[in-house]
Design a protein around this nucleic acid. Structure first.
Lengths: 127, 127
DNA sequence: ATAGAACTTCGAGCGCACTCGAAGTCAAAC
DNA sequence: GTTTGACTTCGAGTGCGCTCGAAGTTCTAT
């Protein structure tokens, strides 16, 4: 049993992480992963734990609206190794600002929605 | 001077609310507004304060990821008048749940990003 | 009166992030 | 050994939310 025979299948990872197998292949094709996923018997993908963790982090970046292109940059930097550590940190710090801004905007919008809800409930109570 | 000669132009509203004039026409065409916007001299749009407030609320719904189709439903209900007040309230309450869920997910993702940032900074400090 | 800016409608086009489907390969179970 | 189902690649298709541009009209300033 070679090392590439171990690891999780694409369906298992899809289930685990909560993205479609199609999306996993798409992410790999686009270069969002650090490396191409290893293959078992020269065809089926076998994901290591590190691969799964990387995919998980990609979903965190996606759920905070980082564009695919930016994640691709991040992955490309990671592939270059240690020399790009500062660049990756900078990229994440810039993104962090945008996430905080998104949270603030969404919180403000929630307040507006809550205000509207309150006026509806008030009017219902008045009748 | 008739009443339709008053009010703001599309460019003024675009500036004020922070969406493009193209988007404002699109929203109106799609039925996201409560009523068609009144016209001055039978062509140019003239927005009332109520129109602007409605557009502002639409942007709050958009920034919390309510789909155009749902906003369209909401506007259609509003057009029906008082009989649909409860339905509109329900729609907003359902959406509120989704906004809270989004905030929670984004907050969790921010924590993951912060964790990653921390490991980068640690490693930088170690050198 | 006329130039130029701002508006109108309409339909087409675009960018993003997948999603799908065809056609073929591989593997595990019976 | 053959069926069943999960996998493979590849390119095309989809849905969403605008965005753009053409062609014509109207307003404003000079």
């Amino acid at each position: 049993m070679t090392i590439t025979e171990q690891g999780l299948s694409i369906a298992q990872v899809a289930e685990l992480v909560g993205v479609s197998a199609h999306a996993l292949r798409y992410y790999e094709r686009e270069g969002l992963l650090r490396n191409p996923i290893e293959r078992a018997s020269s065809s089926h993908r076998r994901y290591t734990e590190a691969d799964v963790n990387w995919v998980r982090f990609v979903t965190k970046l996606r759920s905070t609206a980082m564009p695919i292109a930016r994640i691709k940059e991040y992955a490309a930097l990671a592939r270059q190794g240690d020399a790009t550590r500062q660049a990756r940190l900078d990229l994440l710090l810039v993104h962090r600002m945008s996430v905080v801004a998104q949270l603030e905007e969404m919180t403000k919008s929630l307040a507006a929605i809550d205000y509207k809800i309150a006026t509806y409930e008030e009017r219902t109570a008045q009748q």
